[in-house]
Amino acid sequence: MRGIAERGVAVLLGIRDGVPTAVVALEAAKREWYDIAGAVLRESLTDTELTAPTVSRGGIAVTSSGKPRRRVMWTALCEGTPSGDAVAL
């Protein structure tokens, strides 16, 4: 995403509680990153709940090659595992 550190973001898409949902995990995010992420996602996604949970540095699960482990993070989100507040985008 424009202006956001490439290794510090993961976007998850799925159906949560029957609602199409996009989740943007931003590690150690600057406030303006939330605005950028929301604007980019709203360009492509309509009728989708957009949210961004606060994630500390190292909070995005990755494979040994550095790719985001989206399924692991989505499962944790649906189970309520991530701690911290979420920002509505």
Score class of each variant (00 low, 15 high):
72 V>L: 12
73 M>H: 08
2 R>V: 11
24 V>L: 08
38 G>C: 02
75 T>M: 06
47 D>Q: 10
49 E>P: 01
79 E>F: 07
2 R>L: 10
79 E>Q: 15
89 L>T: 04
22 A>N: 06
45 L>Q: 05
8 G>I: 05
61 A>R: 15
76 A>V: 11
68 P>H: 09
2 R>W: 02
69 R>H: 10
67 K>L: 06
58 G>Y: 06
34 Y>T: 06
63 T>G: 00
89 L>Q: 02
17 D>Y: 07
1 M>W: 07
2 R>E: 07
65 S>D: 14
45 L>A: 08
14 G>W: 06
25 A>H: 10
24 V>K: 07
80 G>H: 11
7 R>N: 09
61 A>C: 07
11 V>S: 00
1 M>E: 09
65 S>E: 13
77 L>R: 02
18 G>Q: 03
39 A>W: 01
4 I>P: 08
28 A>C: 05
84 G>I: 15
48 T>F: 04
84 G>H: 12
28 A>N: 11
30 K>F: 11
17 D>E: 14
11 V>R: 00
2 R>P: 03
89 L>M: 07
58 G>F: 05
41 L>P: 10
35 D>M: 04
47 D>V: 09
11 V>E: 00
54 T>K: 08
22 A>T: 12
82 P>G: 04
71 R>A: 09
41 L>E: 05
87 V>W: 04
27 E>C: 04
82 P>S: 07
6 E>K: 15
50 L>E: 02
72 V>F: 11
30 K>Y: 09
45 L>C: 09
42 R>M: 07
5 A>D: 14
65 S>R: 11
47 D>L: 11
26 L>F: 04
63 T>S: 11
40 V>D: 00
80 G>I: 15
69 R>E: 13
74 W>L: 15
61 A>Y: 10
32 E>H: 13
83 S>W: 09
18 G>D: 03
3 G>N: 05
14 G>E: 04
57 R>L: 11
39 A>Y: 00
63 T>I: 06
37 A>T: 07
52 A>M: 13
88 A>C: 11
6 E>H: 14
45 L>I: 12
11 V>C: 00
85 D>H: 07
49 E>I: 07
24 V>E: 06
38 G>K: 01
87 V>R: 04
61 A>K: 15
86 A>F: 06
34 Y>M: 01
51 T>W: 01
12 L>Q: 08
76 A>E: 15
56 S>Q: 05
